[in-house]
Each structure stands twice: as structure tokens, then as C-alpha cells.
Computed example of a mutant assay.
Amino acid sequence: MTEQRAYSIDSKRRRGRGALSNATGRFDLDRIEQSDGWEIEEVRPAFDTQIRLEHAKSMIARNSSPDVPFDRSINPYRGCEHGCIYCFARPTHAYLGMSPGLDFETQIIARPNAPEILEKELQRKSYRVATLAIGTNTDPYQPAERDHGIMRACLEILRDFSHPVGIVTKGTLIERDIDLLGDMAARNLVHVGVSVTTLDPHLSRLMEPRVPSPARRLATIRRLSDAGVPVRVMMAPVVPSITDHEIEAVLKAGKDAGAISASWIMLRLPLEVSDMFKEWLEEHFPERASRVMARVREMHGGRDYDAAWGRRMRGEGHYASMISARFKMAQRRLALAPELPELAYDLFCSPIRKGEQMSLF
């Protein structure tokens, strides 16, 4: 097994980023060093976001996990500039030969042909409709979407096919697409989950440096709700001894903004995320670091993470049960449903394109 290598980065260079280092991926045999051997102090530029283009060969990814309420998803982008330190998707960058650390939030892969490939996959005679999830891995409304518009183009395809879709985001750019979302919601074809991890803007900036402020995300919930789009407020993740005291307040804020449903996920630290999160704790919350990790390990049999289905999302033990009970009590008190209404499947059909012959039936 290859040893993971890491190097810390000057705080001025990583300003506005979540990761404190750029650990090499599990599949990278080369060690990366920051120093070039000359101990000469120099001013080095901050890390810019680089967008790379990838020609996608397929778009709809399948899963059989009993932990999630969907069996298919698409990802217009790989990596995420939001830079959430806790993001469980960070290790996916290792498969691309890049670091789950700063590379994950500065080396973004955009897939401009995604709408074209998605349309072809939906037109297959063997395709059977079910809710398509977007944003479950990386955020489709991260900053790159402003310039590339891949998510909007995919959404237009799904609208034209009358295909049900569930979207998860922290990005307020989703407001740009309210015209599409409102039309789809009127036909019961879409719902949206907006993640609000904390109401504290300072803490939010530390944990998720390029995500809109909590107040701004709540405003997005209101705008979506006013447009008739069913919205779920998501406290994902709950961070032990950091955000757990805010459960009731986050749910109430979501309800006041127009959310009709609420959900939560416990902090998950798979693979490289564990070391990066502990590094972040020592930097920003050194007095709480041992307490946070003690809670995490308590829920996972003494380990930083247990990937077993049924346990990875919520954990086990006294603390996990207490969080679950508090959430359910707040949910009931605020009349927030545990699930959003089921979407319509019976409207799905392939649209007639220009030059195509219309069906007789």
C-alpha cells in the first residue's frame, strides 16, 4: 500500500480554500514537496482555480446503496470549488491522479458534452425512468457553472423529457434556473435540497470557504419555495461538538424560509478526508479536536470511519442516538416532513425533435 504524502501550504497562498495541505492521492507514487531545497523566503501566488474539460463517455451513474433514496445520478463537474473541508467526495479526485486536498477545490473538471450524452442515454429503448439525483457528489451550482452552464443545459434536457429530478446544492446560482425549476415543479418533476450546516457565518467560512453565507442560502430556500419548488433543508453534515448544538435552530430557520422537509447526515471521514479534517481541527479548533474525534470514533467502533451500509450516514451508539432523537423532535415540532413528496414518473417521454416523425399514438 502506498503511503499517503502531504505537505502544508503557507496560509496566505491558500486563503479562501478549505484544505490546509495537498496530500498526494492513494494512486500517486510520486511524493510532492513544497520546498525546492533553497531556504529563501519568497512571495508565491495564491492558488487559482483551473478548469479542465473532459469529454464524457457516459453520464448516468448507477448505485445500489440502501442508504440513499435514488439509484442513479449525474455529475456535470468533478471536484468542487466550494472547498468544504468535510466533503466525503474529496477522495474521488485520487482516481484522477490528483490530490483530494487543494487539487479537489482548485482543479475542477467540467464535462461540456454532458447534456448531449444525457439525452442519448434517456433515448435508449431500455431506459426505465426513476428520479435522477444531481449534486450528491459535487455541487452542480459551484462557481464554474456561471461560465459553463452545463447544469442548466442538463436541466433543459430533463425538462424536455419530463424526467423527475432531485437536486442538492449549497449554491445560490440555482436561482438563475428558477424559470425551469418552477415549470418542472408545477408538473411534480423536481424537488431541491439546500444544505445549511450552520447559521454562524464565521464558522461557515472556515468549514466551507467558497459557499454562500448561511443567510444567503436561507434566502435561496425562500425564492425556490415562492416559485412553487418543494425544498428540503439539509443539515449535512452534523459535526460533533462544532455544529451539533444548532440542530433545532437550523431546522427552524429552514422552516421559516419555506422548507417543507428536513434531513441530516452525520460527519463522514472516508479515506483521505480523515487526515485533512483532523489537520483542519488542529488549526481552527485545537481545544476541541480531541473531543470531536472521540465522538466520531465512538460512533464508528473506535475508527475514524465505518463505510458499512446502514452505519456510514448516521453512526451508532449513544451520541448518534441522541442526535437522531433531537432531530426527530425538532422535525415533528416544526411539522417538517422526513421526506419530500414522491415525484411523477408517468409523464416521461422522449420529445419530438425537429425533423423527426411524430408518433401516431
Rank of each mutant, 00 (worst) to 15 (best):
Asp256Arg: 15
Ala236Tyr: 14
Pro237Val: 11
Leu251Pro: 09
Val231Phe: 00
Ala227Gly: 04
Met235Pro: 07
Ser225Ala: 04
His245Thr: 07
Ser225Gly: 02
Val231Trp: 06
Pro270Asn: 06
Val238Leu: 10
Val233Glu: 12
Glu272Lys: 01
Gly228Asp: 05
Leu269Asn: 01
Gly228Arg: 04
Gly254Asp: 12
Val239Ala: 11
Thr243Pro: 12
Pro240Arg: 03
Ile247Leu: 15
Ala253Leu: 00
Val233Ala: 13
Ala259Cys: 05
Ala253Asp: 07
Glu246Thr: 03
Ser225Ile: 03
Ala259Met: 11
Lys255Met: 10
Glu272Cys: 04
Ala253Lys: 10
Ser263Cys: 05
Leu267Met: 05
Ile265Pro: 08
Ile242Met: 09
Val233Leu: 13
Asp244Phe: 04
Val229Pro: 02
Ala262Lys: 12
Arg232Leu: 12
Ala262Glu: 10
Ala259Gln: 10
Ala257Cys: 13
Ala262Met: 06
Ala259Glu: 08
Ile242Glu: 09
Met266Val: 10
Pro270Lys: 03
Val238Ser: 05
Leu269Gln: 01
Ala259Gly: 03
Val231Cys: 01
Glu272Val: 08
Ser263Gly: 15
Ala259Ser: 15
Ser241Ala: 11
Val231Met: 09
Met266Glu: 00
Trp264Phe: 08
Gly258Glu: 05
His245Gly: 14
Gly258Ala: 02
Glu246Asp: 09
Met235Lys: 14
Met235Gly: 09
Met266Gly: 08
Glu248Met: 05
Ser241Cys: 12
Val229His: 01
Gly228Lys: 04
Lys255Arg: 15
Leu267Glu: 01
Asp226His: 06
Gly228Phe: 00
Lys252Arg: 15
Ala253Ser: 13
Ala257Ser: 15
Ile260Glu: 15
Leu269Thr: 01
Ile265Gln: 11
Val229Gln: 09
Arg268Ile: 06
Ile265Asn: 11
Leu269Asp: 07
Ser241Gly: 09
Ala262Asp: 04
Ser241Pro: 03
Leu269Lys: 04
Ile265Gly: 01
Arg268Trp: 07
Glu272Met: 00
Glu248Trp: 03
Glu246Tyr: 10
Ile242Thr: 06
Trp264Ile: 06
Gly254His: 09
Arg232His: 10
Arg232Asn: 12
Pro240Thr: 01
Val231Ser: 12
Pro237Asp: 07
Ala257Lys: 10
Met234Ile: 14
Met234Pro: 07
Ile247Glu: 05
Gly228Leu: 00
Ala253Glu: 03
Ala253Ile: 03
Glu248Ala: 14
Gly228Cys: 03
Glu248His: 07
Arg268Leu: 10
Ala249Cys: 05
Arg268Gly: 06
Pro240Met: 08
Val229Arg: 00
Val231Arg: 12
Val233Trp: 05
Asp226Gly: 03
Leu267Cys: 09
Ala257Thr: 02
Ile242Arg: 13
Trp264Gly: 06
Val233Gly: 12
Ile260Ala: 15
Ile247Arg: 09
Leu224Glu: 02
Pro270Trp: 14
Val233Asp: 05
Gly228Gln: 00
